[in-house]
Design a binder for these strands. Structure first.
Lengths: 211, 211
DNA sequence: TCCTGTGAAACGGTTCACAGCC
DNA sequence: GGCTGTGAACCGTTTCACAGGA
């Protein structure tokens, strides 16, 4: 129970997990912090420090048991549970997410899809039928939704977020390019494509100037 | 020419720009660092510090001219140029990106789409015809591509990245969940949905434990 | 007075270097 | 010898607090 784990740390853990999965598939039995660092794009010291926040997983002089560490990382990241997800917004991005193969595979069950567009309501996506966004509170409560994904226009996002949280959502993933205001205890991760593109074009511009 | 601008700074600038656009639309003429902070989810001091890296845009006692600052931010972020983009991977995510309205609107012209799937090659998306990923080098060079978006499976990403860079791409946006190895002068932004989901489920787990 | 611009202090995260165990 | 785990040093970022111009 360390004071606080930084966001960057847990993102790196996610990298390490992915690296481990590959290495296990390739037949590795033990891995070193050096190995993980290489695939995760950091330093060996960083890997060890990251892991040290959660316990001692390796053997000195030997490294880490790949399968064992993989399981530990899964548990740390909360992937030993299954998460009940509601997707709000059945547009392009929503559809891409819904069909995203890793989504199901990693413990995220999209048990509801909602949209404001009455043309879309009632359509069937796989096993679920698209429901009206008006029913959000109802769906979140009834279906015991843990996690709400907002793939909606920016104007609609804050209202939907408020309602999702009020109805019991424990976390939000936000694709709209607005800063959502939510209670401190509800985590939000933002995926903001415009922002990422702008960061990229800035970096390119700089690279041209600075180098 | 400041020593180096941090990634988080430029992501915040992106937020400020979005906030400004909204405020200008709402008729605001001058805005304070406080206003921007509120919409951008930071502190007023942070806003001022961020801007100070690039110059003095405000008037003491008065604030910032909204329209003027908006233009400055655009220039800083490299949005006064148009960027020629090639999209590799005509799957769900690729399609969502291609149709993303903000994409065109913000200066990104997707002038080529490529895919490995021979069934997809030859199909028309809007104005562009999907070409074979084999032609990547050719397309990047011929079309003067600045920016390559990789919306492909992880196994394919590194090879395509290498080829894109060799052919002259100036920056990459990577949707595959692998850490790409590229020359230092080529910026890469990663959009990793799995990682974001894992960060979220970790945060939810923590929120339950810690609070 | 109001609000920006900015050095200086405080904070947090990364890197270093080595002690300790296999 | 090899590699982990970790306190300590280092460094960059955020916050503070105030000087200075409208």
């Amino acid at each position: 129970m360390p004071p606080r784990i930084s966001d960057s740390t847990i993102r790196r853990l996610s990298h390490y997990l992915r690296a481990l999965e590959t290495m296990v598939r390739e037949g590795a039995e033990t891995v070193s912090s050096e190995d993980l660092a290489e695939r995760g794009g950091t330093s060996a010291a960083q890997v060890r420090k990251d892991l040290s926040h959660f316990g001692s997983f390796g053997k000195r002089g030997l490294g880490y048991q790949a399968v064992e560490l993989e399981a530990s990382l899964r548990r740390i990241l909360g992937l030993d549970a299954r998460w009940r997800v509601a997707l709000v917004g059945a547009g392009r991005i929503g559809s891409a997410l819904f069909e995203y193969p890793n989504f199901q595979a990693r413990g995220y069950d999209c048990v509801a899809v909602l949209d404001t567009d009455s043309d879309k309501v009632g359509r069937r996506w796989g096993d679920v039928i698209i429901r009206s966004a008006d029913e959000l509170e109802h769906v979140v409560a009834e279906e015991h939704i843990d996690l709400v994904i907002l793939a909606v226009p920016p104007e609609a996002a804050q209202d939907l977020a408020d309602r999702a949280v009020a109805a019991g959502a424990r976390g939000l993933m936000n694709f709209a390019s607005v800063q959502l205001r939510v209670p401190r205890e509800v985590p939000v991760t933002d995926v903001n494509l415009v922002m990422e593109l702008e960061a990229l074009s800035f970096a390119i511009t700089q690279a041209g100037t600075g180098a």
